[in-house]
């Protein structure tokens, strides 16, 4: 059996009283695209930095591609983009990639033009990084991360600043890398829709703890559904539905039914309304999206929106 690409066991990192990451166990198999979801300050970036060996865990162990994160062979096989998509402003796109090639000890100079082409940077290859748009700076950062065709990619908010076409390109590229080359991807993103489309597994990190993880394909079974309908007399519709055994309430100009029977058999709801003399003018089964699911997970039982995680760690720690 091959070793997982990434294994974290009981990993914690505290900065004084601030619990950045706490007792996280995480295993990511080869070729998986694992997405970390979490609010600002949830510990995603700290976790990624520990995986990259930039921050030492206070407790627990991390194995990256079967080795310690700070070992040279590990670093040769890992590509990353954490924090902002920064580049040396006075260097051109090509020169920035050349610096990365040297430091990554990639022996083939052709890696630079290949990366330029792969990320559609040909037009800007001789433009200084300071003159690039945010989207193209992001492309450059991604090109640098993948220049050496790594076995593991660690990407913090990889599609930040990209236009919709760029987001689609990156999605396709990461999907191809995972499927065709077995590249493992650990990513974080606040674009939950993107995560749902790209990831094979999703982990929810909140206040430094891994609250839940599940295969992305299991999302439809985990999310809630409800029925939304409109009529010409919504108050009467609610009364009719209640009499027919379908509890309903009004929300934002629509009649909402959350009961399982209503969601499973919307045609029975429509029939009940027609018989009651308030035929529906619109009826939709609404599926909770990942954002809704995520917010429900991190929301306290009172239902009030929770403050976003622990306070930001002081910089420079």
């Amino acid at each position: 059996m091959t070793a997982p690409a990434l294994r974290l066991q009981g990993v914690s990192k505290h900065y004084g009283p601030v619990r950045a990451v706490h007792a996280v166990d995480l295993t990511v198999g080869t070729g998986e695209v694992y997405a970390l979801l979490g609010l600002n300050g949830a510990g995603k970036t700290t976790l990624m930095r520990m995986v990259l060996g930039m921050v030492r865990p206070g407790a627990g162990s991390i194995a990256v591609l079967g080795r310690g994160p700070r070992e040279r062979p590990t670093r040769a096989q890992v590509g990353y983009l954490v924090a902002a998509a920064a580049a040396y402003p006075e260097l051109t796109v090509r020169e920035n990639l050349e610096v990365a090639r040297r430091l990554r000890r990639v022996p083939t100079p052709a890696a630079v033009p290949d990366a330029v082409e792969l990320f559609g940077l040909g037009e800007y290859a001789d433009r200084r990084a300071r003159d690039l748009s945010q989207g193209n700076r992001q492309r450059l950062a991604l090109a640098r991360a993948m220049l050496h065709r790594p076995s593991l990619l660690v990407l913090d908010e990889p599609v930040n600043g990209l236009d919709p076409a760029g987001v689609a390109e990156v999605r396709t590229l990461l999907g191809d890398l995972a499927r065709e080359h077995g590249t493992t991807v650990l990513l974080s993103s606040h674009l939950l829709g993107e995560v749902a489309r790209l990831a094979t597994r999703i982990g929810v990190l909140h206040r430094g703890r891994l609250l839940e993880e599940f295969p992305a394909r299991a999302l439809p079974q985990r999310v809630r559904h409800h029925l939304e309908l409109t009529t010409r007399d919504d108050d009467r519709a609610v009364a009719v539905l209640a009499a027919a055994g379908f509890p309903a309430h009004l929300r934002a100009g629509a009649v909402v039914l959350t009961g399982e029977r209503a969601v499973r058999r919307p045609e029975d709801v429509a029939t009940a309304l027609v018989r009651g003399g308030v035929a529906p003018t619109g009826l939709t089964v609404v599926r909770e999206d990942l954002e809704g699911y995520f917010l429900r997970l991190v929301r306290p039982p009172s239902g009030r929106a929770e403050a976003p995680g622990p306070p930001e760690r002081p910089r420079g720690r």
Binding site: L52, G53, M54, P69, R72, R75, A76, V78, Y80, V82, A83, A84, A86, A87, Y88, P89, A100, R102, L103, R104, R105, R144
Partner: peptide
């Protein structure tokens, strides 16, 4: 200042060499 330090921290070239 250019926020490029992270690009030097987890590459095969050692930090001491940099």
């Amino acid at each position: 200042s250019d926020r490029t330090a992270t690009d030097l921290l987890a590459v095969p070239t050692s930090r001491t060499a940099v």
